[in-house]
């Protein structure tokens, strides 16, 4: 383990402060007895109480998390397969063409993606709601996974695969024992960024949702006209704290149980 000098530490500290500043600002005002994100009046818990009283809001939050987790999982699976397919393509022109197609959804504004998906779903006859939202989120998260996995694949030493094959490993073994472990960081990066895409999306979800199904983003954006209530701040604060606790907890448990293993590997 290398130690960080003072200056690098300061640099990281500034980056993290900026990253978290808006979130702490939101949480700070979630305790405001006044109505909005300014003029802090008095400390109150009332907005937190309001979160738990609003059953509809809780259902929406759960919807949002379910969609995010499932869409990230499925898009990661499909994306990894896609990246492998692209990597193993022999025809370079074909490869470039597929890669460019892969990126189209990233350059298209959400409104266009949303509108064209809506037309697509109504044409095929998919009922708007959970399924259509899930499918759309999978669809727009795939490109980011592919882009995250590809550089790991191209860093991979091909002699590694050849060696494994020479040693009599089956193709399946090569995949599960050589390739996938090597690109694992790319897979996780893709998964987490897919989560980000899903949690943040408003426009696409707005177009393809229906029949009472809603996500937090759609809810928040449609509140803009009459003012976003501080209940949403309180809710975001709760989600944030739970997420951080989960991540740190998971990390700690993981380290404890896996410590010896990784220690040996290094």
């Amino acid at each position: 383990m290398e130690r960080l000098g003072k200056l690098p530490k300061l640099y990281l500290a500034i980056v993290f402060i900026i990253l978290y500043a808006p979130i702490f600002y939101l949480i700070f005002y979630s305790f405001n007895s006044g109505g909005g994100m300014s003029n802090f009046e008095e400390f109150t818990w009332e907005h937190y109480a309001a979160v738990f009283e609003d059953k509809r809001l809780i259902i929406i939050v759960l919807n949002t998390i379910i969609i995010a987790l499932l869409s990230a999982l499925l898009s990661t699976t499909i994306g990894v397969i896609g990246a492998l397919a692209i990597y193993f393509m022999r025809n370079k022109k074909m490869r470039n063409a597929v890669l460019s197609l892969n990126n189209i959804l990233m350059v298209s504004p959400d409104v266009i993606i949303g509108a064209s998906f809506l037309i697509l779903f109504t044409m095929i006859g998919v009922k708007l709601g959970f399924a259509s939202v899930l499918i759309s989120h999978i669809a727009f998260s795939i490109p980011i996974v592919v882009i995250m996995v590809l550089p790991k694949l191209s860093e991979m030493n091909t002699s590694l695969i050849d060696a494994a094959l020479d040693l009599g490993a089956s193709r399946k073994d090569v995949m599960t024992r050589v390739i996938l472990p090597f690109i694992k960081p790319g897979i996780f990066a893709g998964f987490f960024l897919a989560l980000t895409y899903s949690l943040d999306d408003f426009a696409v979800t707005f177009f393809v949702t229906g029949n009472g199904f809603s996500t937090l983003s759609v809810e928040i954006y449609s509140m803009a006209r009459t003012g976003i209530s501080l209940t949403i701040n309180a809710l975001s604060g709760l989600i944030f704290i739970v997420t951080v606790a989960l991540v740190i907890g998971y990390y700690a448990i993981n380290r404890k149980t896996k410590m010896p293993l990784t220690g040996v590997k290094k």
Binding site: I23, L195, S217, Y221, F240
Partner: peptide
Amino acid sequence: IPSWINLLL
């Protein structure tokens, strides 16, 4: 993690 909090907020 910060990117999981709603962008509009």
